[in-house]
Amino acid sequence: MTIGFSTHSRPTPPERIDLGDLLLRRWRTSDLTRQFAALTASHAHLRPWMAWAEQPPTLAGQRRTLQNSAAHWPTPDGCYRYGIFTASGEVVGGIGLHDRVDPTALEIGYWCHVAHTGRGIIARAAHALTTTALTLRHISRLEIHCDAANVRSAAVPRRLGYELISTASRPRTAPADSGIGMVWATTSCRPEPPRAGR
């Protein structure tokens, strides 16, 4: 696994993490059709919880997003965005590391294709990013933020051994939000979670 260096002399996470049957890879502009199809199929599933899914995706919007991700590592807003792919190249979700907590921490955000929920895909991808990010010399903590009502999202950090460090009121940004935010954090990583059905 290769770790590069940014123009700010800080190590950056690798652009590709191979888990065998799953691949986390930096988005490319050539992923447009597959990413757009996955987001379109999953829009009704994502909209209740994701502020960015308020409107259905558009090809033009996703093209801009992919161009941004392909041109910058991290993006200007401090994000490392990965697609989650099967061995055959199908898009089954997305995951990212976000530089919006503090200089020694990164936040993990994720979404799953509606046809692939309940298979442990996001837990395995989040585990891989947790492990990877904690090898970066300036990072000592990973966080996952979610609404308290989003049971599926909260199950991921719980399964990975993250500690619930905060439960507090926050603005509602998506239709199903309760207005109570949960912050989960870890400074270490447990063994990889088992695959679904194992």
Rank of each mutant, 00 (worst) to 15 (best):
R158I: 10
L142T: 03
I17V: 15
A155E: 07
M50T: 08
D102M: 06
W52H: 12
G118H: 06
T29M: 10
D177V: 05
Y82M: 01
S166E: 15
A41P: 10
D77K: 13
A148W: 03
T130G: 12
L39M: 08
Y162G: 03
Y80P: 01
P57V: 07
Y80D: 05
V91C: 13
P13V: 00
G181K: 02
N68D: 13
D21S: 14
H138D: 12
L32T: 15
P194M: 02
A168Q: 15
T40A: 13
S30K: 10
L97K: 04
H113L: 13
G83D: 00
H145C: 05
S166C: 14
S30A: 14
R172A: 06
A185P: 06
E90Y: 01
W73I: 00
G94Y: 00
D77E: 15
A71D: 12
R190G: 14
P103T: 06
L24T: 02
H116R: 12
I139C: 00
R28V: 01
I108Y: 01
R152N: 13
H127G: 01
A123L: 06
D99M: 09
L97Y: 03
A185S: 13
G78M: 03
S188P: 11
T131P: 04
A174E: 12
V101N: 07
I84P: 02
W73R: 05
G120N: 02
V92F: 08
S6L: 11
C189E: 08
L164N: 13
A154L: 10
T104I: 10
L46P: 09
S166F: 04
A105Y: 04
G96I: 04
G61P: 05
T33V: 08
T167N: 10
T173I: 14
L59I: 14
A41N: 09
T187M: 11
I139W: 00
A71L: 12
I3W: 06
R16Y: 11
R34Y: 02
A148I: 06
V101T: 13
L136V: 01
Y110C: 13
D102W: 08
T130F: 10
T104S: 14
L24Y: 05
W111F: 02
L23T: 07
R81C: 10
P13C: 06
G94W: 05
L142H: 01
A115R: 13
F36T: 09
E90S: 09
L164H: 10
G61Q: 13
G197H: 11
R81D: 15
W73Y: 04
P171E: 15
A148T: 08
G181H: 04
F5Y: 09
P157C: 02
G120L: 04
E192A: 14
Y110R: 07
S30R: 08
P175I: 03
F5T: 15
T135C: 00
S88R: 11
P191F: 05
E143D: 13
R141M: 11
R172Q: 15
T58R: 08
A53N: 11
S9L: 10
C189W: 03
S153E: 03
I3T: 12
Q67F: 02
R64D: 15
A196S: 10
L59F: 11
S69A: 12
T186Q: 07
R64I: 10
I84R: 02
